[in-house]
């Protein structure tokens, strides 16, 4: 076998596996669909608001329910110290929230 055939063969094999990964993804998607539906229903029924990604701190456990103060509430000038806090950005809506929902008063002159 020529060296080129070996190299091209390996590349083709890798490309075929790459293609197969998309087929496998489609298969897994349809296999997971019923479970996802049931989970969605559970969320609606139990009135859940957050995913259980990190249980160590309340502002990472219930990310959407946290406020900007909770990570620093232990004592005045406290630093946020849970490792998961460095992985999760603060909820974007929280940073913009007052502008969107708070009283829309004109600034005084």
């Amino acid at each position: 076998m020529r060296p080129a055939d070996r190299v091209l063969g390996a590349t083709l094999l890798a490309a075929a596996l790459f293609g197969l990964s998309f087929l496998d993804a489609a298969r897994l998607r349809s296999a997971h669909e019923p479970a996802l539906k049931r989970t969605e229903e559970l969320v609606t029924r139990l009135r859940l608001t957050d995913a259980v990604l990190f249980t160590e701190a309340r502002y990472t456990r219930h990310l959407s329910q946290a406020d900007l103060h909770s990570p620093f509430q232990d004592h005045p000038v406290a630093l946020e110290h849970f490792p998961s806090g460095s992985l999760l950005p603060p909820p974007r809506a929280l940073l913009k929230r007052h502008e969107a929902l708070d009283r829309e008063a004109a600034p005084s002159d």
């Binding site: 608001t49 957050d50 995913a51 990604l53 990310l63 959407s64 329910q65 406020d67 460095s86 992985l87 999760l88 950005p89 909820p91 974007r92 809506a93 929280l94 929230r97 929902l101």
Partner: peptide
């Protein structure tokens, strides 16, 4: 302090944002 569903979803849509995270 009202938290809208839309905000909950937006929070999770930006989770582990590519620019963020250790």
């Amino acid at each position: 302090r009202p938290i809208l569903r839309e905000e909950v979803l937006r929070t999770y849509a930006s989770i582990f944002d590519w620019r963020e995270g250790m």
